[in-house]
Design a protein around this nucleic acid. Sequence first.
RNA 1: GUCCUCGUAGCAUAAUAGGAGAAUGCAGUCGCCUCCUAAGCGACAGAUUGGAGGUUCAAAUCCUCUCGGGGACGCCA
Length: 587
Amino acid sequence: MSILVELNEKIRNAFLECGYEVDGKLVTLSDRPDLSQFQSNTAFIVAKKNGINPVKLSEEVIKKLENDTDLSKVFVAGPGFINVVLDNNFLSSYIERNFSKIDLTKYNCDKKKIIIDYGGPNVAKPLHVGHLRPAIIGEGLKRLSRELGNEIIGDIHLGDWGRQMGLVISEIKLRQPNLIYFDDQYSGEYPDCCPVTVEELNELYPTANCAAKNDEARMEEARNATYILQNKDHKNHRGYYELWKQLVKTSVSDLKKTYEKLDIHFDLWRGESDCNNSIPKLLEILSEKNMIETSDGATVVYVNEEGDKVDYPPVILKTKNNTVGYQTTDLATIYERLEEFDPDEIWYVVDARQKLHFDQIFRVAYRSGMVDESKKLVFIGFGTMNGTDGKPFKTRDGGVMRLSELLDITENKAFEKITNTSIEKSEKQEIACLVADASLKYADAISNRLTDYVFDIDKFTDNNGKTGPYILYSQVRIQSLLEKANVQGIKEGNLLAPSSKEELNVMLEIIKLPDVIISAYNNKSLLEIADFLFYLNSSFNNLYNNCRILDEKNIERRASLLKLIRIVGDINKKLLYIMSVRIPKRM
RNA sequence: GUCCUCGUAGCAUAAUAGGAGAAUGCAGUCGCCUCCUAAGCGACAGAUUGGAGGUUCAAAUCCUCUCGGGGACGCCA
């Protein structure tokens, strides 16, 4: 149970004893830590409602809390704030009871089945810097939800079925027209190897896209190739599909390498193409509801609803070329996910600019009855990572920066900063890899999810402040202390009441954990977790600098301090795991 | 043009139902290693919360207007 919830009950009962029924969030962390630890502003609300003096009411209420031994001080300040300070013995035993083992599942009483759709890389394009955010946020939210006891399935949802594939295929046809895939008379087996390397593949799409934009004939060719691909069973062009399979295979093996390096793991590697068989069913459902119309040769669904301030563009199920785009595949994917998994919620971690698209899709999904009103489709938008010029981060020559290149740059920077001379070069390399990873992930998490942020490598890899390296260093210090204690045979013992303000501050940070976790989960934001990690470790570093832990003369106190920092270490491990940040043994 | 989103110290962010000196980190200035990793800790300084009205005992937060950044708006994804 969270400390705020417990205090909430105390305040609620005190008001009740005075004859006032109050509800909701009655207690918050104090805005004035110099005065108290927690505060309640409830008297203002009650006083206003009943036309009484808030100071008098507060004074009456705190009388009911006078004999509560969990609290050392309860007093009224200013216009009627109720200030609360915990009893030190209560505090340490509270931590002993609730945080000796870190188990987050107990904070979530409404466990759900969730599908989280994140990543969404396009198989025709290499992973670029823009793919970093959805990977970090999605993986973090997935792990957070899972730690809270939900059943959550992460799906990468590859972009593998739209016109980008038609562009690539027609570009290959142009360059290598004699490939067996383009021989519609061919009836034998196709080779199990890809005619292009991943490097070539990464170059094909930008070239083809650029060319087709300036050449309507080539664009038409690409649309045609898309149509053939998508209708693989009806045409004598199975070679297109076979070629496509090879392209996807090549791309996916490359994607896996980069995601692996980031310690990001998808449960499902499905793509837009996987729902192809459900598209007729989707059309049937929408048709039964009389939702389908024709407009300029395209098959569409109008999504405007009464009271709309904006005129929504329609959802285009089929273009006049009879191809399907991501609106159709996203809808068919919802259908398949419900059929196969029956989740309570589906989360979409996607670029904030996709909001309109998902608004449209969700409307169709609910209105058609395909998704029951009780289920939640959730749009989790994010801003982009920009360069210092405010535009999406680019390479020095202005091109799109590959994600792998960004990782290399950050790793080199992290390597330079390792000053510990006792570490060998090969270990240094491993540490740099982890520190770089932490730098990027922490920097992403600490930025507001919805706004854009600037890639600033010096800031991200800084040793001080709200950065990955700072948190890692603190944890490495804790690990080192625990290791030394182990070697010296020092065991942890019962948690004693804090004997210094440094110790007290660490304890006051620890008890915030449940509220931070719940809030992060509700807001679907890693920011609160990253922020909390900073304050927790800052309080630990403060303690570390001011109190000798292993040299503490009082044996019981030493054992207590050891337990306290072990708990901080355990919390660090858990939260860093949620952020998919790995911890080096030393730095 | 319509809609979405964001404007908080030089920069980056916070403020969990409207509440007490608007918090924190970088960067700046100044201190701290005979001692568990100084990749650390402490202190100082820095803000008409874009602007103008309004509601309230109380506004960064709510309402109206206004200025500015970013974004979306039918056959790309």
